[in-house]
């Protein structure tokens, strides 16, 4: 089997890289396809105080009946 696998060594390498990517994503909790996060912003000292958040979300295009 090793001889046969050697004939497709680049596929074996690609499979190894995929597996490594999956392990990395699993360890760090990373989504490999898409992210719901829209932006990361650094807030000033007061704005992140509990209960004083300002609206900083983005309105998305929205369709409704």
């Amino acid at each position: 089997m090793l001889e046969k696998l050697f004939k497709i060594k680049y596929i074996v390498l690609a499979g190894g890289l995929l597996t490594a990517g999956f392990v990395w994503a699993g360890m760090y909790g990373s989504r490999l396809l898409g992210d719901d996060l829209e932006s990361v912003e650094k807030m000033d000292n007061n704005s992140f105080q509990h209960g004083s958040g300002r609206r900083s979300g983005h309105r998305t295009g929205f369709y409704h009946k």
Binding site: D36, L37, E38, S39, V40, E41, K42, M43, D44, N45, S47, F48, H50, G53, R55, S56, G57, H58, R59, T60, F62, H64
Partner: peptide, 21 residues
């Protein structure tokens, strides 16, 4: 419908993670 723009605030670093559902 209700649109929910949300900020996840890291109280230590001050970073705000923005998303909308």
């Amino acid at each position: 419908w209700v649109e929910l723009p949300i900020s996840l605030i890291n109280e230590t670093s001050g970073k705000s993670y923005e998303f909308t559902r």
